[in-house]
């Protein structure tokens, strides 16, 4: 394992220190936690947004803390959900009385830990709502789907809604609308190495890829022969579209998300094909994101995310922060 770290046990705390040291005007950490909040939290009268999960997905989640986006991010150990007490600290730090929305990815660990935190917060008379993201169409049963890159679109759109001064119920409804209308699918060409284990999560031959990978360095739902970029893109886009109800004339946002080690150059090659495919189907791409939004350490690969836009989501996304 070759990593620029000092020790497996300090990774998350040193990353948090680095984040705050690099952006002291924007960010603040809550002492003795791995919780990062906006420097000016709590923002009076504003609904507060919290996201989080295991670390190793950077820039998610702490990279989204800031004006017009999240109020706090809670970082667990690498690929391990944070504990309820840390989430509770975040809730207490950002609630201004307007209520708190937790943005949770649908993994057993995240769901349970955030749920316990919400219970603890309710016991302290803080109003907390949750939206659970399940955008990964690699899993066929919609209830079991993982939350992956589409989560960052919830950060952006719900973040813009909260910044406009909308109420907790309104922000929750908007976030839920994004969650209901976003779908993703990923492919990986090479695994990543979780620092604590020190070994790659799996091995792939030179001509193999994993289709349907999540964001925790796991294998996907199927191992396949490596294909060219256009063919891979077609497969991912088709899989995503099959699960959506888009018509000729539908408006969408598109995200090509790098898993960590894939050069931006390749992501743009994928973006090119995805945009072509959507155009061929009469679908209007109003906004395209190409880059690293939700990574799996240094995994090689990418995911395609499509969000069906209604007028409100479109307005919030185009006017909001990225």
């Amino acid at each position: 394992m070759k990593k620029l770290i000092n020790g497996v046990d300090q990774i998350v705390s040193e990353m948090v220190e680095g984040l705050v040291a690099a952006h002291p005007d924007k960010l603040r950490a809550i002492e003795n936690t791995n919780v990062i909040v906006r420097a000016d939290a709590p923002v009076q009268g504003k609904v507060a947004l919290i996201s989080g999960g295991g670390s190793g997905h950077e820039p998610a989640h702490a990279g989204y803390v800031g004006e017009g986006l999240l109020d706090a991010a809670v970082s667990g150990e690498v690929f391990t959900s944070p504990t309820p007490d840390q989430v509770l600290e975040a809730i207490k730090a950002v609630d201004s009385g307007a209520g708190v929305l937790l943005i949770v990815k649908n993994y057993s660990g995240d769901v349970m830990n955030f749920d316990m935190a919400a219970d603890l917060a309710e016991a302290e008379d803080i109003t907390v709502k949750q939206v659970v993201i399940r955008d990964d169409v690699a899993i066929s049963n919609p209830d079991d789907r993982r939350g992956v890159a589409g989560t960052t679109l919830v950060h952006m759109i719900a973040g813009a809604a909260a910044a406009e001064g909308k109420s907790l119920d309104e922000v929750e409804a908007i976030a839920q609308g994004v969650a209901d209308n976003v779908r993703s699918m990923g492919v990986s060409l090479a695994p990543c190495t979780v620092p604590a284990s020190g070994k790659p999560g799996f091995t792939l031959e030179e001509n193999e890829m994993e289709i349907g990978t999540g964001i925790h360095g796991e294998q996907g739902v199927e191992r396949r022969e490596l294909m060219q970029a256009d063919a891979v893109t077609e497969e991912l886009v088709q899989h995503v579209l099959d699960d959506m109800h888009l018509n000729d004339g539908s408006e969408v946002a598109l995200m090509i998300n790098g898993q960590g080690a894939t050069p931006l150059m390749e992501l743009y090659i994928v973006a090119r094909k995805a945009i072509q495919l959507l155009k061929d189907r009469g679908i209007h791409v109003k906004k395209t994101f190409v880059g690293e939004y939700m990574t799996s350490l240094e995994m090689t690969g990418c995911s395609v995310t499509i969000l069906n836009l209604d007028e409100e989501r479109k307005r919030l996304l185009l006017s909001g922060r990225e």
Binding site: G54, G76, E77, T80, S81, G109
Partner: peptide, 10 residues
């Protein structure tokens, strides 16, 4: 609960 996280912690 406060030290494990993940699925197994809760």
């Amino acid at each position: 609960i406060s030290k494990v996280g993940g699925a197994s912690g809760p």
